[in-house]
Design a protein around this nucleic acid. Structure first.
Length: 554
RNA sequence: GGCCCCGUAACUCAGUCUGGAUAGAGUGCUAGCCUUCUAAGCUAGAAGUCGCAGGUUCAAAUCCUGCCGGGGCCGCCA
């Protein structure tokens, strides 16, 4: 209903629609009104007391109110306050509340998740994966054509370390696709190398051999262990509800990356001392090394070739990469390099969304030292708690309970990752992570399930008649009404957390409504049922944008 | 040393982009509410120098500067 007020104010004041839209807000207290227009901007323009302006503007607006759905206009201080006709609000919300504004149908490529083979998939990866998936869904819902891409590290020094350590110290152990075993070998490698720096030479040698594929034994071992890691991801992604249209691997780009680096050197875009590098000091971006002194390829060079492939094969209006904070500079260096290569337009469309780390209350998580929480262990933990709760509620053990527990656990995990500002670090408290009360994923699912339960129990259809509305109904209606605005804002600022916060507030308002307004058997049953259904739809689409699945019963 | 991000209640966070009406939640704590649609819920209460100091402004948690504290990055890890 905001649009009506925006139009009115814009007409009366001569301010642009867009500007008014930004200014119109929701008053802190319901008694003050449903929408408010602050007059400070006008005060500056007209050089007049804002309170006076508010009074006069309210007076003027009141005159042509009859033709609108606004029931009253008032002023308080420097604010013009609008009261909408609640019955009309209700009608409008029931009719088309929860709609998302579709844009111009731009195309977008989103790269996210980027796990490494031979390393742990830990809770930090859950954040990046949830974030990327949610963004892709928000883009698509807002009318974009989206390609979701995963890009995994299956070569590089960490793999060489793994293979070196396995061959030298663990060769008797059977190859396994158990994540913690795989992660454990890597941790052991890091430990041994830290003790004796000289051993790194042996690792370098293996790195060479992986790259030039000259040693069949090493190549075979690489293939097998790589496959084991990748296999473990299938299950993780299906559980997390992450979907990829394209999956690329670093290994595919090794040869091209070296050629490209040498080509840049040829063209004098890159420089060489003992290594081949981009000198970006004058852009305050330091030095970006492309090839090691032994000629092997670094991920910088591979990322250049990856970008070129994106431009060529997935021609898009925008290319977004979500990566951990620590890689921010790397991508700034990449974009600058693309620019220096003459790809100005493409460079400008290459977006980077850096996100914060997941840390323990005591400090950093690290897959190098093994001081982290593996996805699989974490999920099992949360799922066990969910199962326990379901059993407490009298549900029989079995496949159905198991599936539900999984959904609840995933909702809990994903919501906790998405509700926070992406750029901030998340403090991961294992105790808080298995709590299901308050601002949590399960609370949202529970609210949805309650609504579903009402809908299930309806016996006969009653007419939707809007009588006097209680404050809890009005609050819920208004919240539903603002869904489109929230999604638009989340889209603009690449911030799924806004949608997460909205879903929580929406659920809160539903629960307040639930306690204050009986549905079944009430005089208002027809209307209230329609409201419950609308709430359900909107919460479901909000959660869908977060990549969280609902459950009908809990 | 340089650059980037963060600092709001005991704890975990919204709010900062776009300054504006008494700074909001959750957890934990205290006290209530299940013979009515799921108590993973609801109601009430206690709890705040919005890191510190300046500046801009009629008005600053929000903008600017400096400082302090935490995190990250700054050539051969990804």
């Amino acid at each position: 209903m905001k649009d009506i007020i925006v139009k009115l104010v814009s007409n009366e004041t001569g301010l642009k629609v867009g500007e008014v839209e930004r200014l119109v807000e929701i008053p802190p207290k319901d008694e003050m009104g449903d929408f408010a227009f602050p007059c400070f901007v006008l005060s500056k323009k007209l050089k007049k007391n804002p309170m006076l302006i508010a009074e006069e503007l309210a007076e003027k607006l009141r005159k042509d109110l009859k033709k609108t759905d606004i029931s009253n206009v008032d002023f308080k201080g420097a604010y013009v306050n609008f009261f909408v006709d609640k019955k009309i609000l209700a009608e409008r919300v029931l009719k088309d509340g929860g709609k998302i504004v579709k844009g111009k149908g731009k195309t977008r490529l989103v790269e996210y998740s980027q796990p490494n083979t031979h390393k742990a998939f830990h809770v930090g990866h859950i954040r990046g994966t949830s974030l990327g998936e949610s963004l892709a869904r928000i883009f698509r819902a807002s009318g974009e054509k989206v390609v979701q891409m995963n890009y995994s590290g299956d070569t590089g020094m960490h793999i060489a370390k793994w293979i070196w350590c396995y061959k030298k110290y663990h060769a008797k152990e059977k190859l396994s696709d158990d994540e913690s075993w795989i992660a454990g070998i890597y941790v052991d490698a890091v430990k041994r190398l830290a003790k004796n720096e000289k051993l790194q030479e042996e690792v370098d040698e293996i790195n060479q051999k992986i790259e030039d594929k000259s040693d069949k034994e090493i190549s075979d071992l690489w293939k097998k262990t790589r496959a084991a890691s990748i296999k473990s991801w299938d299950r993780i992604y299906s559980e997390l509800g992450a979907h990829f249209d394209v999956g690329l691997f670093e290994g595919e780009f090794e040869a091209d990356a070296r050629d490209k680096a040498l080509d840049l050197l040829d063209k004098k875009i890159a420089k060489k001392d003992d290594a081949v590098f981009m000198d970006l000091k004058k852009y305050n971006l330091g030095v970006w090394v492309l090839l090691r002194r032994d000629g092997t390829v670094l991920y910088s060079a591979k990322d250049i070739v990856l970008a070129l492939k994106k431009f060529k094969e997935f021609k898009s209006d925008n290319y977004l990469v979500t990566v951990g904070n620590e890689q921010k500079m790397h991508f700034e260096q990449l974009v600058k390099t693309l620019e220096l290569m003459g790809l100005k337009k493409e460079a400008a469309s290459y977006g980077v969304l850096p996100f914060g780390m997941v840390r323990f209350p005591e400090g950093k998580m690290s897959s190098r030292t093994g001081n982290n929480v593996l996805y699989s262990d974490f999920l099992k933990n949360v799922k066990d708690v969910a199962s326990g709760r379901l059993k407490d509620r009298g549900e029989n053990p079995g496949k159905k309970l198991d599936e539900k527990a999984l959904k609840i656990a995933i909702a809990s995990i994903k919501y906790s990752m998405l509700k926070q500002d992406p750029k901030k670090n998340i403090i991961f408290d294992p105790n808080a992570a298995v709590a299901f009360e308050g601002d949590t994923g399960p609370y949202l699912l529970y609210s949805y399930a309650r609504a579903s339960s009402i809908v299930r129990k309806v016996k006969s259809k009653k007419k939707v008649k809007i009588l006097d509305l209680k404050s809890e109904e009005i609050k819920l209606l208004k919240k539903i009404d603002s869904f489109g605005d929230v999604v638009a804002k989340a889209y603009d600022s690449l911030a799924p957390n806004l949608i997460a916060n909205y879903c929580y507030e929406l659920a809160q308002m539903f629960n307040e409504f639930y306690h204050a307004c009986p549905v079944l058997g009430s005089v208002e049953e027809g209307f209230r049922l329609a409201l419950v259904k609308k709430f359900r739809d909107v919460l479901k689409s909000g959660l869908d944008l977060l990549g969280i699945e609902v459950v009908e019963e809990m």
